[in-house]
Amino acid sequence: MNKRFDPSIVGFFCNWCTYLAADLAGTSRMKYAPNVRVVRTMCSGRVDPQMILWAFRHGADGVLIGGCHPGDCHYQEGNYKALRRITLLRTMLPQFGIEPERLRLEWISASEGERLRDVVNEFTEQIRRLGPLRKEAAPKAAMAA
């Protein structure tokens, strides 16, 4: 278990849906992988692609963005903006040597605590399978875990 790669994942969760889903998972005492560290934004539309690249550059092995379901955005359409940006960014990631699978956008509503748990667990597993983003850091990361 100790030798297993323990990925670092940054989660950008919107204040109104996915952040609340994580709160709900908490109050419901659901258990999930501790790898996603959440940065709260008011809307998934606030997530700047540069923020995502900044995360990858500073050691993130994966980035998970959580927003409201289509049509449910607290700010009408910020989640659509996020979708467009992230779709575009994913096509560019390979040019930086980053697998697009390391970036995921999910719609998780405030009442979907279970879904949050499942997405976090599944994404953590996916990143674990992909291995560390910076391969040279791999032995160190494995040691740390």
Partner: peptide
């Protein structure tokens, strides 16, 4: 919501409590 801030290519748009340097 901060959507304009995320889109601004020159860093001119900023959002209180969620400024670029904070995030």
């Amino acid at each position: 919501c901060g959507t304009c801030v995320a889109a601004c290519p020159s860093g001119a748009a900023q959002q209180n409590l969620f400024r670029d340097e904070q995030l």
